[in-house]
């Protein structure tokens, strides 16, 4: 049994300590690699992998957060811009409305004033016409009076020339009568 084990060892190690085969398996080296590797894994996990991976995760989270917040901010800004645009449009509309209103008012005032002045003018014309008419009447009346007077005077003259004694007396009598009456 021991001999078989020894042979197996020989087959593996290719002839004991003095060997130099390429495919020799050296149990001592296996032991050292095992110990060193396990030790290395524990140490590196503690001093390197855990902190480094944690930092990487932290940074990734930070970048993701930053991107998210940037996106949110952009969305917010876009919303604000849209709102501003809407406000601007509304203001424009309002301004347009005010201008239209003003224009309408001005138009109204203008037409009103025009109407007023028109009617005033018409009234004045009417008045002037009436006055002219009155003056005309007056002048006509005066002319009529004058004409009557002149006619009477002329008649008087004519009559004075043509009056005989008899007639004169008659007239005087009449006058006298008239005077008496008064």
């Amino acid at each position: 049994m021991a001999e078989i084990l020894n042979l197996a060892l020989l087959a593996f190690s290719g002839g004991g300590e003095s060997s130099g085969g390429l495919l020799d398996v050296n149990p001592g080296l296996i032991f050292w690699v095992l110990v060193t590797f396990v030790f290395l894994m524990i140490v590196l996990t503690k001093i390197a992998w855990k902190p480094i991976l944690a930092s990487l995760d932290e940074r990734e989270a930070l970048i993701k957060d930053s991107l998210d917040s940037a996106e949110k901010a952009q969305k917010e800004a876009e919303k604000l811009l849209k709102k501003n645009e809407a406000n601007l449009a509304k203001a424009e509309e309002q301004a347009q409305k005010v201008i239209a209103q003003g224009r309408e008012y001005a138009e109204k005032v203008k037409s009103q004033m025009l109407e007023e002045s028109k009617s005033e003018a018409a009234r004045m014309i009417k008045e002037a016409t009436a006055q002219i008419e009155r003056k005309n009447q007056e002048a006509f009346n005066k002319l009529k009076d004058q004409v009557a007077e002149i006619a009477i005077e002329a008649a008087e003259k004519i009559i004075r020339e043509n009056l005989d004694k008899e007639k004169q007396t008659k007239l005087i009598d009449k006058y006298l009568k008239d005077l008496n009456k008064n």
């Binding site: 398996v25 080296l29 590797f37």
Partner: peptide
């Protein structure tokens, strides 16, 4: 050390 079959065999065992 990775050109030694003992080392690579140990890595493979792990």
């Amino acid at each position: 050390i990775t050109s030694n079959i003992s080392v690579t065999a140990t890595l493979a065992i792990i």
